[in-house]
Structures are given as structure tokens and as C-alpha cells.
């Protein structure tokens, strides 16, 4: 029995990969783990429920979305630009790592415990902050908006409080995300 493959080329964290021969129907999470050794996307349920597996796709149209890699085939990402948690921090010329504001906030707020679901939360929160930068919202809507952005992400350790508070903190500290009252 031979497994049918198709060529796959894509950009992950600004690095080009491919063309690689990848089996049809291989889920993206397996591609990330087995082909390019990026293990930040985690298998929590394998059914698209817990969202520990999400990666970010940046569309040419300018929108970005979180995609569940455990239920989406790798070939869907052909030609696409993908961000995983491994690509969110920056390393400067001196080799110093600079965490993104969301990552830094999660550290300062002690937002995670075992850390398994954390890459998913980081990706979701990152997208949320990016969306707000384009479409600021009134302060009174902030808590509801955070709930909506994160509600699909399951965490078993933390009870969610410190994740949510960290995201609120990032939004309040980043200028331009909250609509000033008229």
C-alpha cells in the first residue's frame, strides 16, 4: 500500500518550507510535528474542540484567523502564510529574546500552569489584539469581546482567570485598542 502524496509549499513564521511531498489527508498538526519539528501546536482532543492546536493563517486580504490544525489538512495551507507560537517572539541583533506583549503579559500575570494549552491562548489573544488595533471597541464591551475571542479554548489547570485578566491588561495598556467615548 502506498500513500498518495502531494507537494506542499508554505511559509511558517516568515520561513519558507517546501516543496515537500506530504500525504493527502495528513492533518496540519502532524505535518508541523513530524515534518518541520514545530511542536507548539498541541494535540489536546484531536477533534477541534479544545483549540490547543490552533495556528494563525495570515490571508493576503489582510485578515488573519486561527485554524485548528488537528482537523485541517496540511494541504489547505499550501501557499499560505502561517504563524505558530514559535514565531511570535523576536530575537534582536544581540541575540536577546523579546517576548510579544501577549507572551510577556501571560508571564507577568502567571496566566498558565502546565502550559499545554498556552500556545493556543497566545495565538488567540494575539489575533484578538491585532483585530482590536484595526477595529477598536468601547471599553464597556471589552470583557465580552475577550470572552468571545477565547471562549473556545479549554484550560484544565488555571480556571481561566489569569489568562483573561492578562489579555484585558494588554488591551488597556496598548494605545489605540479602546474606542474613546464620544
Amino acid at each position: 500500500m502506498s500513500i498518495k502524496t502531494q507537494p506542499l509549499s508554505l511559509t511558517i513564521n516568515n520561513q519558507h518550507y517546501g516543496p515537500l511531498e506530504v500525504p493527502e489527508g495528513l492533518m496540519m498538526i502532524d505535518f508541523l510535528h513530524e515534518y518541520v519539528a514545530l511542536t507548539g501546536c498541541r494535540l489536546g482532543c484531536g477533534q477541534g474542540i479544545c483549540h490547543a492546536c490552533v495556528a494563525i493563517v495570515d490571508h493576503d486580504s489582510g485578515t488573519s484567523e486561527e485554524v485548528r490544525t488537528c482537523i485541517t489538512g496540511a494541504h489547505f495551507f499550501n501557499g499560505k502564510k502561517v504563524r505558530t507560537v514559535e514565531g511570535l517572539a523576536k530575537t534582536d541583533d544581540n541575540g536577546e529574546v523579546q517576548l510579544s506583549p501577549v507572551q510577556q503579559a501571560f508571564l507577568e500575570h502567571y496566566s498558565f500552569q502546565c502550559g499545554y494549552c498556552t500556545p493556543g491562548f497566545v495565538n488567540a489573544a494575539t489575533l484578538f489584539v491585532e483585530r482590536l488595533a484595526k477595529h477598536p471597541i468601547p471599553l464597556v464591551d471589552l470583557e465580552g469581546a475577550i470572552e468571545k475571542a477565547l471562549e473556545n479554548h479549554i484550560c484544565r489547570c488555571t480556571g481561566y482567570v489569569r489568562y483573561y485578566q492578562a489579555v484585558r491588561d494588554v488591551v488597556l495598556k496598548t494605545p489605540g485598542l479602546i474606542k474613546e467615548p464620544v
Partner: peptide, 19 residues
């Protein structure tokens, strides 16, 4: 069995902002 049938508490189940 998976998390569709085994219901783990979500943020909306724990009074996340008010507790």
C-alpha cells in the same frame, strides 16, 4: 468519548470576571 460529551468547565462556567 471526547470533550464533546465530557464537559470540562469553560470560562463562562466559572464566573471568570466576578469571582
Amino acid at each position: 468519548w471526547n470533550f464533546n460529551r465530557y464537559h470540562l468547565p469553560r470560562a463562562s462556567d466559572v464566573a471568570v470576571w466576578k469571582q
